[in-house]
Design a protein around this nucleic acid. Structure first.
Lengths: 295, 295
DNA sequence: CTTTATATATGAAAAAATTTCATGTATAAT
DNA sequence: ATTATACATGAAATTTTTTCATATATAAAG
C-alpha cells in the first residue's frame, strides 16, 4: 500500500518508471504493476506514459500533493520510531579497504543517511590486515574483510570478487581470452606491499610463479595508473576496476581466482542499534547491486 | 500496511481488540495478528493487554498521535479521490421492503455515509411488488427484491432467508422441533395482504393448505404484535424476527421454505457513480454479516 | 524504410503479507 | 469450580506484492 505511493512519488520525481524502479530497488516491471494497481484502486489513470517517460494526468496532478503529504507524515512517523529505537543518535565506526571505500561505501552511507540522518560515521581506511586489527582493538564496530576471518567475529559473506590481470590496453597478451598466470613472471609486476596483498601473493605462490616486482605502492589507484602508463602489469580485484576501463585491459586469470569480501563484527553486540541497522543496509545494498552473486 | 494502522487506532479508540475487530469487520484473531505484526515491524510493544482490554505503552503513547496524523492525511486523500470519482455529490434512491429497511439499511447507510458523507439517500418503502414497480418507473436506482426477478434488471442474490412459523410463546405446538405446514389450517392465521406475501401464499398453496385468515394487515410488525398477544399464528421471514424474540416462538417449517433476498438495478448504468458504490457496500456488508450464507 | 535502443506492459509464477479458522490460555465474575 | 470474556497462536487459505521472461511501442540512427 505505502510502497505503491512511494513508487508513484518517485516515478513522478524522476520522470520514469525505470528510474524509479532502479532508485527504489525494484524491477521496472514491479513499478509498472504498482502504478497500475494504484490506478485500479483509485479508479482513474494518474500517469500518461510515453516513449520519453511519464507525465501526470489531470487527476494525477490533483492527488500527487495529497500523496506527498501523506508520505511526509509517514516519514515523521518513521523518525519518531527511530528515536524510540535509539536510532536518532550514535556513531557507526567502519573499517574498510580501498575498493569498498571507493565503490561501495559512499552509496550505502548515503542511503543510510536518508533514513537515519542523525547517525554519525567514522571511517578507517587500510588493508584487510588493518581491518582485523581494528576489530580486535575495538576501534571499529564493523569491518570489511576477506574470508577466511577469525571466528572470534560474526562474519557475513557479501561478494565473490574475481582477481583479474591488468595490462596496458595495447599489450599483446590482451588479445587472449584469459591470462595464464605463468605469464606474470614475464612482465614487470606492480605490487601492493606484502601485508596488503595476501590474496594475490597466494595465487602466485599456488601457481609457483615469482613475478618480477618492479614497483611497490600502497595505493591501489597508483597501481592502476602505472599500468595505464605502460609500466607493467598487476593483479587486482575486479571491484577496484569498477568504472575504470580507460587504457587498461582486464583479463580473467587462468586458472581463475577470487577473493570473498565479507562483513565482520564482534559477537557480543556492544555496538548500539545503529550498527546492526547499518549492517542490514549493507547486506541489502549488496544483494541489490549484485543480484546474481548471492552468497 | 495501512490496515494495520487503522486497526491499531480503532483498537485504542475502542479499548479492545475484539471491539475493533467487530467494528472494522475483521476477526478478533485478525486484529491480534495485525497489532503483533505492527509491533514486530516497529521493534517495540505498543499495547499492554489485559483482561479488561488494552492500554497504550509508553512507546505506543508516542507513536499514536503520529499514526493518527498519517491516517488523517490518508482520509483527506480519500476525499480527494472521491471528488475525482464523482462521489462527492449525488443521490442514491433505494426501494425496500420492511425487514430490510429495519434490520439492514440503517447500518449499511451509516457505514456508507462515513466514507461518502456528501451522498444523499432517498428511501421508498413498500412490498417487493412495489419495489419492482419503482424500478420499472425509474423511481429508484436500486431495489431489494425477491428472486425470481424480471431479467430486465441486473440481480445480485444476497441471502437465503428462511420462512418461519411464529406462534405465541406458550402455544402447545411450540414444543415441536419444526412446524408441519398442515397445522397452519388449524390456527387463526394473520396475513399480509395478497400482493405483499407472494412467497407465503405459494408455500401454503404448494402444501395445499388453506389457512383460516383471521386478520390482514400491511404492517409486518403489527403481525408480530398480534401473534405476541395470542391472536393467532403467521409465517414470516426470519429476517423480520431479528432481535425480536420476546413472547414469540419461531419454528422452522416442515418442509422448510425460504425466500431469496436479492438486489436489482437497471442494466444500463444510468445512476451515477454513487449507486454502484453503494451496491458494493451492500454486498460487502451482507457477506460480512452472514459469513456462512454466501450466495 | 529497416534496425536499434529505450521505455513501458503483461501474463504467469514465486514470494510475502494478510486474514481466517480452530483452538488455547488467562482471568475476573458467578 | 464453573462460566464467560478477552487476547494469543499455529496452520491454512486468501490476497497482494514482486519478479521473471517476454511483448509492444516509438523515437532515433543508419
Amino acid at each position: 500500500m505505502l510502497n505503491k505511493y512511494e513508487a508513484f512519488i518517485r516515478t513522478v520525481e524522476l520522470g520514469s518508471l525505470s528510474k524509479a524502479a532502479d532508485d527504489l530497488g525494484y524491477t521496472q516491471s514491479g513499478v509498472s504493476h504498482m502504478i497500475r494497481s494504484l490506478e485500479e484502486e483509485l479508479g482513474f489513470k494518474i500517469l500518461i506514459r510515453s516513449r520519453a517517460g511519464i507525465r501526470l494526468t489531470d487527476a494525477g496532478e490533483q492527488i500527487y500533493p495529497a500523496i506527498c503529504g501523506m508520505m511526509d507524515h509517514h516519514e515523521q512517523l518513521k523518525q519518531i520510531v527511530y528515536a524510540l529505537r535509539g536510532m536518532n543518535a550514535g556513531t557507526v565506526r567502519i573499517g574498510t579497504f580501498t575498493s569498498v571505500a571507493v565503490h561501495w561505501l559512499p552509496d550505502i552511507i548515503k542511503e543510510f543517511q536518508q533514513d537515519f540522518p542523525h547517525i554519525q560515521f567514522k571511517l578507517l581506511n587500510g588493508d584487510y590486515y588493518d581491518v582485523e586489527k581494528w576489530l580486535r582493538k575495538d576501534a571499529v564496530d564493523v569491518g570489511f574483510v576477506h574470508i577466511p576471518v577469525s571466528d572470534r567475529y560474526h562474519c557475513i559473506p557479501l561478494l565473490q570478487d574475481r582477481l583479474l590481470a591488468i595490462l596496458p590496453q595495447d599489450h599483446p597478451l590482451t588479445q587472449g581470452k584469459s591470462f595464464p598466470i605463468a605469464y606474470a613472471a614475464k612482465e614487470p609486476f606492480i605490487s601492493l606491499p606484502d601485508s596488503s596483498a595476501q590474496d594475490v601473493k597466494q595465487v602466485l605462490k599456488a601457481a609457483n610463479v615469482s613475478p618480477k616486482i618492479k614497483f611497490t605502492t600502497k595505493d591501489d589507484y597508483a597501481i592502476l595508473s602505472m599500468v595505464e602508463h605502460g609500466l607493467g602489469m598487476s593483479i587486482v580485484p575486479e571491484l577496484l576496476l569498477t568504472g575504470h576501463s580507460q587504457n587498461i585491459a582486464a583479463l580473467e586469470l587462468d586458472p581463475p581466482a577470487s577473493r570473498t569480501i565479507a562483513l565482520a563484527f564482534r559477537k557480543q553486540n556492544s555496538a548500539g542499534p545503529a550498527t546492526g541497522k547499518f549492517i542490514d543496509y549493507i547486506c541489502q545494498w549488496v544483494a541489490r547491486r549484485y543480484p546474481h552473486h548471492l552468497l
